[in-house]
Design a protein around this nucleic acid. Sequence first.
RNA 1: CGGAGUGUAGCGCAGUCUGGUAGCGCACCUGCUUCGGGAGCAGGGGGUCGGAGGUUCGAAUCCUCUCACUCCGACCA
Length: 458
Amino acid sequence: MPWPGESLKGWPDGELRIPMRLSQYFMPILRDDPKEAEIVSHKLMLRCGMIRQEAAGCYSWLPLGFRVLKKIEQIVREEQNRAGAIEVLMPTIQPADLWRKSGRYDAYGKEMLRIKDRHDRDMLFGPTNEEMITDIFRQGVKSYKDLPRNLYHIQWKFRDEVRPRFGVMRGREFLMKDAYSFDLTREAGQHSYNKMFVSYLKTFARMGLKAVPMRAETGPIGGKDSHEFLILAETGESGVFFDRAFLDMDWTAFDIDYDDVGAVARVVEDFTSKYAATDEKHDAAEFDRRVPEAARVTGRGIEVGHIFFFGTKYSEPMGAVVQGPDGKMVPVESGSYGIGVSRLVGGIIEASHDEAGIIWPEAVAPFKVGLINLKAGDADTDAACETIYKALEAKGVEVLYDDRDERPGGKFATMDLIGLPWQVIIGPRGLKDGIAEVKNRKTGERENVALATLLERF
RNA sequence: CGGAGUGUAGCGCAGUCUGGUAGCGCACCUGCUUCGGGAGCAGGGGGUCGGAGGUUCGAAUCCUCUCACUCCGACCA
């Protein structure tokens, strides 16, 4: 991976790195596709026992799915932190008054889940947090000297979609990272926007995705500048049109200094200079004029991120003002920046699977290695597997050990289905010659590796 | 929110038209034989048939109401 040394260490998520014996795990595999699942990621997530539907658009995350969700969340967190954003955590339930102030309580419509508490007070399950964060910011910051700031949280949202579908891709309850920037001037706000832009490219690239930034509608959030980040997938909900040159760009070359305004702007410039648009913003004439025919890519995409620069849209009505150097009170310039964390789980599967199952990019894989004991119960294979399992554990390699007393065929099928990047296959046949078989899930390549050097592979 | 459909065992389904002992495959449990890409045989466990009313000697099946879920269209991280 492009950014070696990234890890979950230092966060509670590190606890998720523990290895596991399949005989002691909870991973209810289905052999058949549940009928309600229409798209491949939904089918695979259900078949792998990653999620379970509790109501339309609401899911329980079972152990395997939970691990992936947490890994994605942690990558998002690391890249937000690196770009200078500061993590907070706001509640899922918000008072309606906050939304009355911004005027969105009525404007948001039925998509907002409205509830009353025991005192008959109007509450709501937050679909987003512009109002709340602006209020928090307003109370905490009074001077231009306290700017810029960018606060984010990773929290469950609820949008009472008319028609939830496609599993976690369009759930009603979903995990979203949302960040909010506050600046004194338009120019400074633009830099904050640009930093998020670059960090998004990097965040998605770390997950093995090429998420193409496209000029977007601002929708109910409102504002001036907006980009959506879309990954290509046939089952995507948006039509996309873009220059093939995007796919050939170096998606790993923006390990830049986020304080370098010019450098950040150049990356944004680089990634916005080529044509890329969703069907909403698509201009066929411009597409034809700017993109040579051979380079025109049309297809479908999944929106995994969306950034907005909306200036003073919320700061003005909500009185989020600071005192400038000249002593005057000015409303702050803001932007908001979302990443669909739970949607990404489905999105990555849509972008990375084959006939046999999921193919996890290593950075988000629930385990790095699947250790297959082909003959559980046989003293020699048991002992060899046990040694390898312990050694991988000691080395900090996340391993799922299939120690069940099952037939080899089923174990292979299960391991392919859940898509761990590496399979280490141990059977009497290989053991006789002191070798293990190492299979790369993505390429299908198998290699015989001497047991003595096996550990060096991981 | 308009249109279409489905609810029967963990999953996939039959049975409903024509009322009469709740079934099949996979999964699960036991035993034996197997064991390098989803084995075979034998035995076994598991269901208030989405819910509530009604008709009937008798309802998964007929009637009424209701709930949930899925799909297609207009909206969205």
